[in-house]
Design a protein around this nucleic acid. Structure first.
Lengths: 265, 265
DNA sequence: CGCACGGTTGACACGACTCAATTGCTGTGG
DNA sequence: CCACAGCAATTGAGTCGTGTCAACCGTGCG
């Protein structure tokens, strides 16, 4: 299972958003890759690079950020199973920095393999397209977050989104998960100052919505948080939207949540 | 030429970002379409729709915006030659509103045609992918705008981006072009209040950078505007980056501009 | 003619930024 | 085992950017 680990993660992510045939899975199982480790706040790709492989995230968090490091606006966040630079297959020129938030393990997959599988299987080709589309949906949501919410709701919304995505890949237990962000990173993600990010977190604590201690986020009041953020997981297009019940652990939480979260008519 | 108009626009946009063979152009020339007209501030697609065709923008401006209309955050802007809903070919479910800004003419192109041409020509398939990638690059830039610039620079940057994209399709003469936005729309695009948008425009006028009168923007000081916005057209991936000289009309402007705009080393 | 919409103005409140200093934590080497 | 370095988190005070409210103007269209 050790060698199949990368394949498993990727196949699971793809199956999340598109039907895969057995033949598709067999193709994916032959995926060649190399394992790489990175420390916290390292830069994997920089502006101008033209990589010939993609990064499949196996452990930790990655983000695209403007400029080199520290402080540059973060434009998107990736969790285990994601492939942040999938687009480089079709357009290798990189226009920002792909950086780690905390320690990270990635599988490097050659462009060649991805191009060939896409040309061999229309199912996989469509799955790749949908991965890109899902990515764009996240970007639009990030824009809405920055453009139309105050900082408290921005942070709350980001916490909700992260929790949902982690749960979808089975990486958030009960009501807690490892935070992708240091407070400065959170600030860079939400377009606020680091000092203000701190005060926002304190306010969330004060309202007894969550705890955020030493890189671990513990949500103590899901309904409150979701309501504050007006979080609607619809845009994530994750399986378990209709079956969202099994995503959240505590039954009473899910019952209350479906009551609060407005689904489109 | 009248019937070929839609085809021409689309082919030009695709050729902008990807090499097209003669066979590809012939395929595109057979593109079936229907012409539709819309008034200002109409909604073409709403959340939940599942269209079976795409909109090729022939005249005017379109945008994706959260919520129904008026006031909802604008997440992206489209100019002549763009196809804002190309992604619905692979994932028909729509998650926001596609709205007009001012009067609009679109050509509706069936998904079926786009799917078939993509499967027949790998060149066109790649061109479509790159269109999506270019779109994502715009979204990331929009995020940077909202997250890391103050409102004055936000507006300035948006004006620069719009002007560049219009020039790339030959729709901005000299130093003026029709504004996509009413002041309220500008506010919705930049994540500020309508009142503040007004004051920002006045400030840009006061600094003698541009005029913004009755839906027409006239830039009076390109260098100043570009410098204020720290605008770097790199991310647009438009032809005429290296050959940017012929994009701007007045020679002295281009000379100064290349001196001010920092190109990556 | 009058309504409606887009643009304009002023006063005021508040959210968020900055600067600067302090505390707490974690890991490393003496 | 302790001392220290370095980074992350925290705090307070003062400033400034933006939002809100409410009213007013101008113009195009029915």
């Amino acid at each position: 299972m050790q060698t199949g680990f990368a394949y498993t993660r990727f196949a699971a992510r793809l199956a999340n958003i598109s039907q895969l045939s057995d033949a598709d899975l067999e193709l994916l199982a032959r995926m060649p890759f190399r394992i790489d480790h990175f420390a916290s706040h390292e830069t994997i790709l920089r502006k101008g690079d033209q990589p010939d492989h993609c990064c499949l995230l196996l452990q930790g968090y990655l983000c695209w950020r403007e400029a080199g490091c520290e402080g540059g606006q973060i434009t998107s966040l990736y969790v285990v199973g994601d492939m942040p630079d999938l687009y480089t297959v079709d357009s290798p020129q990189v226009a920002a920095s792909l950086s780690t938030l905390g320690p990270v393990v990635v599988a490097s997959v050659p462009h060649l393999f991805l191009r060939e599988t896409a040309s061999l299987s229309s199912g996989l080709s469509r799955a790749f397209s949908r991965l890109a589309i899902a990515d764009a949906a996240l970007l639009r949501n990030w824009i809405i977050n920055l453009g139309s919410r105050d900082s408290l709701t921005r942070v709350a919304h980001l916490v909700c989104e992260t929790a949902w995505r982690l749960r979808a890949v089975g990486h958030a237990r009960d009501d807690q998960f490892p935070s992708p962000f240091t407070q400065s990173d959170l600030a860079a993600a939400c377009g606020i100052s680091a000092v203000h990010a701190n005060r926002i977190i304190q306010e969330l604590r004060r309202r007894r919505l969550l705890n955020w201690r030493s890189r671990m986020v513990t949500v103590t009041d899901w309904e409150g948080l979701i309501q504050l953020a007006r979080f609607d997981p619809d845009y994530l297009r994750l399986p378990g939207l209709n079956g969202a019940a099994h995503v959240l652990s505590s039954p009473h939480a899910t019952a209350e949540r479906t009551a609060h979260v407005r689904m489109p008519p």
